[in-house]
Design a protein around this nucleic acid. Structure first.
Length: 284
DNA sequence: AATACATACAACCGCAATTGG
DNA sequence: TCCAATTGCGGTTGTATGTAT
């Protein structure tokens, strides 16, 4: 008999989060910071389990999350990373600071897997010939790329001492793909958007906004958004939580090169193959 | 206009890993 | 060192929305 699941207690709410719940959670985290999730439901008054609260925060409410379509570059990076790391979504997410592991996982499962399957199918039909490879050659190339990446990883693991993972050595984070200057701005946007949706979805609530309850909720929301905006990254309240510290992770400079340098020959074949299909509208 | 089907994504579940007493 | 509590992760499911018939 194992430990009972944390969420099977009576009275624990499941399903989609409401804006009210989001605001309660955000207000609490704004004040106390993330962490100690066990106590969050009781302290916030949320009828949610701690797990659900943590997930809601990390996947949706956390500052700096970018939503919407993945760029082509992000797409390529995910494909690279998946080939290298397999389904280690959290590790992949560390290379896409604005995306959550859940987002990457979903995107892989809904978009990229299909694309690759299509490529593979077409490959059997001779599409690889179009890119200059027979199927066997293509598979060997892919395997070689994976081996190359593994080698790079091994080499990277052997490197000693701290590596400036977030420094100028990492073009992805420093220049080529600029990080928003203020993750809190995007956070405020998240909340603002959330509140907009709230208003849009509940016209009856808005119509009765003259009522005390609605107006107080709106007031709380506005306050949350305002306070949120006041928090600069320099204040550091959420800095430590925004993502697992990349510096604490593996020093993967060679790997980064492989992942990010389009011209790097080892990976280029995979990219080339993918590019053929990705820039075409025949897919999806 | 109604229905069926497909798609996207938020959220849940269970297990593994980590932490702290 | 052990064990229970907590947190993190990946797989899977549920549901809202879009599209085709």
């Amino acid at each position: 008999m194992g430990r009972p699941p944390c969420c099977d207690k009576a009275g624990v709410k499941k399903g989609p989060w409401t804006p009210e719940e989001d605001i309660m959670l955000v207000s609490y985290i704004q004040e106390h910071g993330p962490g100690n999730w066990r106590s969050v439901p009781t302290k916030t008054g949320l009828s949610r389990c701690s797990k659900s609260c943590r997930l809601r925060w990390t996947n949706y409410l956390r500052p700096g999350i970018k939503r919407g379509n993945f760029t082509e570059q992000e797409e390529k990076l995910i494909i690279h990373l998946q080939a290298l790391l397999g389904n280690r979504w959290a590790a992949m997410a560390s290379y896409l600071p604005e995306r959550t592991d859940n987002d990457i996982k979903n995107y892989w499962n809904t978009h990229l897997k299909k694309k690759l399957r299509r490529i593979d199918t077409e490959g059997h039909g001779g599409n690889h010939a179009a890119s200059g490879f027979s199927k066997g050659q293509w598979e060997r190339r892919v395997q070689t790329d994976i081996d190359t990446a593994r080698l790079a990883l091994q080499e990277a693991l052997l490197m000693e001492g701290p590596v400036g993972f977030l420094t100028e050595k990492k073009p992805f984070l420093s220049g080529r793909r600029p990080v928003p200057t203020s993750t809190y701005a995007s956070s405020a946007e998240n909340i603002s958007r959330l509140l907009e949706n709230w208003k849009r979805r509940t016209p009856d609530r808005r119509e009765t906004a003259a009522g005390t309850e609605s107006s107080s909720s709106a007031g709380t929301a506005a306050s949350v958004t305002q306070n949120w905006g006041r928090l600069s990254p320099e204040t550091g309240l959420f800095q430590e939580d925004s993502k697992p510290s990349l510096e604490a992770q593996l020093p993967l400079s060679l790997l980064e090169t492989w992942l990010l340098d389009e011209s790097y020959t080892g990976a280029s074949e995979v990219c080339t193959t993918l590019d053929v299909s990705m820039d075409g509208s025949d897919l999806l």
